[in-house]
């Protein structure tokens, strides 16, 4: 007969083995619990004229950096001074869903006065967990689809923000003005980004309304953008590239410019800095602007308005920047009517 360990012996054996791990987890939990308790108390003490703000971004891309910059500049425009009137903690989840949840928990726990979210997943994670603290979103193309509310005016009570939809029909009008005979425009888009797909569809709708067809090529990673752009420019009869604004193309914009230059196709961008980078023009309601606008909404909330009473807004201002040299190289003439409307030029 084989003698096994008795159950009573297991009862000693297992806990003994697990004890160090349990002790460590317990210690870490206690540390977290006590430290977060202190944070909450501290927050309670300083709440007054001085505001504690947080920015939560999902990924590290030019777009979320632009958004962050916009928020800071926007707060400055409202007359608030960092250090004197507010402090702002910045968080990024580095595209890691588990980290995003941890950040939202940490932010919720630290009792900030207001939370900015940048990009759709950041808003979604906040929606699920944050019920009291005001949340102001930006860099989100479709807040309704993301679950922030039923409509722009009827939405989650503590949430409001800026819908970062570009002005697609305005862009198509520009295209018509600049080259009236254009039949086909194109863009690279990223199937993995919810905003990118949305913008692509909106651009298509706007273009088709004017009898222009839209050619699209998907790219899923930075490495694929150059190939996608080449494929878009060659042999498809695309006359103008109207590059929609998404994380992927923003990060790899030079690759698109290069492919277009090789075929002498002009590039129109939806991000203000596109023109500076070498696009013929940019017609932007961009993420930087979105950041500025969201900072203004935040200011209203900090001054006492309820987020529930503030409808979601589109980005307020559209900026037209023309890059004369790039336009010339691509072989297009900017009509005077358009040039007169430009906010600035790049020589």
């Amino acid at each position: 007969m084989y003698k096994r360990l008795k159950y009573s012996e297991w009862l000693i054996y297992y806990p003994a083995k697990l004890f160090p791990a349990l002790a460590l987890i317990f210690a870490a939990s206690a540390l977290l619990l006590f430290s977060s308790q202190k944070a909450a108390e501290k927050a309670g003490g300083t709440a007054g004229k001085f505001f504690r703000l947080a920015v939560v971004a999902y990924s590290d891309t030019p777009i979320s950096e632009e958004g962050r910059r916009g928020i800071k500049d926007g707060l400055m425009e409202t007359g608030m001074d960092e250090k004197r009137d507010y402090e702002m903690a910045e968080y990024s989840a580095h595209s890691d869903a588990a980290a995003l949840n941890g950040i939202i928990d940490a932010v919720k726990n630290a009792d900030y006065d207001l939370i900015f979210t940048i990009s759709t997943p950041a808003l979604q994670a906040a929606l699920k967990k944050i019920q009291k603290t005001p949340v102001v979103f930006s860099s989100t193309g479709d807040p309704i689809g993301a679950g922030a509310g039923k409509s722009f005016s009827s939405h989650a009570e503590n949430v409001t923000g800026i819908c970062s939809m570009s002005d697609f029909s305005g862009m198509i009008k520009l295209v018509k003005e600049i080259s009236p005979d254009v039949k086909k425009i194109g863009t690279v888009f990223c199937p993995a980004e919810i905003n990118s797909v949305l913008y692509k569809d909106c651009l298509k709708k706007a273009a088709e309304g004017e009898g222009i067809s839209l050619e699209t090529v998907p790219a899923n990673s930075a490495g694929e953008v150059a190939d996608a752009a080449n494929s878009l420019c060659e042999g498809r009869g695309v006359e103008i590239i109207c590059q929609i604004a998404d994380n992927l193309s923003a990060a790899s914009f030079p690759a698109i410019l290069k492919a277009a230059a090789a075929e002498r196709i002009p590039v129109f961008g939806f991000i203000e800095s596109d023109a500076k980078k070498g696009a013929a023009l940019s017609y932007a309601k961009d993420y930087y602007r979105g950041g500025i606008d969201s900072a203004k909404l935040a200011f209203r909330i900090l001054k006492g308005e309820k987020p529930a009473g503030i409808p979601f807004e589109y980005i307020s201002k559209t900026t037209l920047v023309i890059n004369k040299k790039a336009a010339e190289t691509a072989g297009i003439k900017i009509p005077k009517a358009v040039a007169d409307r430009a906010d600035s030029f790049i020589e």
Binding site: L22, H94, A106
Partner: peptide, 23 residues
């Protein structure tokens, strides 16, 4: 336990205001 402990460490790091770029 490793998974829980790991998340706790990350939460503590976040709690103590680690620079997000260092996460």
């Amino acid at each position: 336990m490793g998974s829980v402990f790991f998340r706790l460490l990350v939460a503590i790091a976040l709690r103590f205001g680690m620079n997000p770029n260092d996460m």
